[in-house]
Design a protein around this nucleic acid. Sequence first.
DNA 1: TAATCATTCCAGAAATTACTGGAATGATCA
DNA 2: TGATCATTCCAGTAATTTCTGGAATGATTA
Lengths: 215, 215
Amino acid sequence: MKDARSIKDALYEQVARIGKVFSSPKRLELIELLCQGEKSVETLALEASLSVKLTSSHLCELRLAHLVETRRQGKNICYRLTDKSVADLWVQIHVLAEDRLIELQLALQKIVSQPDDWVNSDRDSLLKAARKGEVVVLDVRPSEEYLNAHLPFARSIPLEELRQRLDELPKDRTIVAYCRGPYCLLAADAVLLLKQEGYSAIHLREGVAEWATSR
Amino acid sequence: MKDARSIKDALYEQVARIGKVFSSPKRLELIELLCQGEKSVETLALEASLSVKLTSSHLCELRLAHLVETRRQGKNICYRLTDKSVADLWVQIHVLAEDRLIELQLALQKIVSQPDDWVNSDRDSLLKAARKGEVVVLDVRPSEEYLNAHLPFARSIPLEELRQRLDELPKDRTIVAYCRGPYCLLAADAVLLLKQEGYSAIHLREGVAEWATSR
DNA sequence: TAATCATTCCAGAAATTACTGGAATGATCA
DNA sequence: TGATCATTCCAGTAATTTCTGGAATGATTA
């Protein structure tokens, strides 16, 4: 057996490879996007406001850590998370961050003006209300993401189409809008628009990844 | 509302503060040690083979991320994890790493010569066997760590005292030795010693943090 | 009150990581 | 087969991070 120290160093070194992936804001944003489903490099670059080259190099590091896989589709190369446990880890990290970092809590409050726009969801009761039709759960992400996975009983109206398709929504029931997660601004914009138009609307912080975590 | 991009950047930036903590092998080792209970800077430095200064600076980063708290005890300052969710995150990260990284799996195999030294624990059956007294669960960590928390039905014999206290253990039952977790070598050494002395002994990879995770 | 001692702060050197532009790859599609 | 185009590789530079030595802190203890 080699000496204990060098063995240990090697072990922690390997685990740190995973940790390093989660140490860059840009990579975190890419992971959250990938939680919504498979996406091409170009799409990811666009949505994360990065150059394609830089996106590619970040994705390369994700792949080296075996957290993402690739697949060629036509001319594009599509990236996806290797499995659900990667999304789970992302959720657990950002939830821990929200619990611990006051700065993050403050920054989150800037997303909406009124704090009561939030619903710190009790899943069961939301689910029950949605089943009964008492509320409308609205997915405002791009439709491909909705097709990949969505919350139970959710309807899809991408934010871009929302203004044109307002008449599809009832005015006598509360609209619960959600998007990719707490750091995505789509649902906040949707709620703002809906309120201006006289709808009763609240903002659900959770996205599909958060919803799907075991705890 | 400020522009979407700068808000998002700020949010991911904050979450990355937590990720950064887990991106350094040395900090991971310190976190694992802290999973065993409160420890002074000097103790941590010694066990992680670091200088006191460097240990202090790593701990400072942990504290800035609000993952650890301090308490003065006599002349020493003791660090502890702020709560269980930090330990849970550590466990989830290293388990994910073990699942994904072949290099880590290979490095783990170097710890013991025979692969059947491992028991990829089925918790319930181990618990049952321990309750019935069919196996002896042996905690070989320093006794303070045992006193802080230990596995159900576990007995404590620190590795250093094991050779002198061999007669406390039965030869007709299997000894299941565990320590701080899969990257701690104490249990591996204990199993080696026990086998040389004619005992039936196996190595449990899990420590208290792994055992205590909800999943 | 003074002495002690564990710990932290500070500043600098070495190593690593993030990002940018130009060239190369390699599969698709005509 | 040859043209196209998304993506990756390969420099180089800027920025961060890790680690080391000397000084400073600040609570304890005599």
